[in-house]
Design a protein around this nucleic acid. Structure first.
Length: 107
DNA sequence: TGATTGACAGCGT
DNA sequence: CACGCTGCCAATC
C-alpha cells in the first residue's frame, strides 16, 4: 500500500456514492494536494481500474463536465450521471444537490 | 535527469 | 455570460 498521491486519489474516487459527483479540485484537496487537480485528470485518463474508479463522477469546479476518454466522450458521461440520478442543469450539474460530501467523520 | 504533457482552476476581458 | 491566458503539480516519455 503506497501512500502515493495516485493511490490516494483512487481511493477517494472509489468512495464517491452513486447519484453524487465530486470536483477534481475537491478530490485533490482530499488527497492533500489542493493544487493538483490537473494531475487527477491525468490519472483518470489512464484509468487503471475502470470498474473500481467511476471517473465519470468526477467533474469540473463549475459542475461542468470535462474530458472523459470513454466512448461517447462528454455526452456519454452526461448520460451516465443522469442515469445515476444526478440533476443536470443544461450542461452543468447542480452542485447544490449532487455534489458529494466527503465523509462526515466528526459531528 | 530533463522537458513536456494534461479529463483543472481562477481571473481578466 | 462566454472565451482566453496563466499558474500548478505529478506522471510519463
Amino acid at each position: 500500500m503506497q501512500d502515493n498521491f495516485k493511490s490516494r486519489v483512487y481511493k477517494i474516487i472509489r468512495k464517491i456514492p452513486i447519484g453524487k459527483v465530486a470536483t477534481y479540485s475537491q478530490i485533490a484537496s482530499l488527497a492533500d494536494h489542493p493544487k493538483a487537480a490537473r494531475v487527477i485528470g491525468q490519472f483518470m485518463k489512464h484509468n487503471p481500474d475502470i470498474p473500481a474508479t467511476p471517473c465519470h463522477r468526477v467533474i469540473g469546479s463549475d459542475g461542468s463536465l470535462t474530458g472523459y476518454s470513454g466512448n461517447g466522450g462528454i455526452k456519454a458521461k452526461r448520460q451516465l450521471l443522469l442515469r445515476e440520478g444526478v440533476t443536470f442543469h443544461n450542461n452543468k450539474i447542480n452542485l447544490k444537490v449532487s455534489l458529494w460530501k466527503p465523509d462526515i467523520t466528526h459531528l
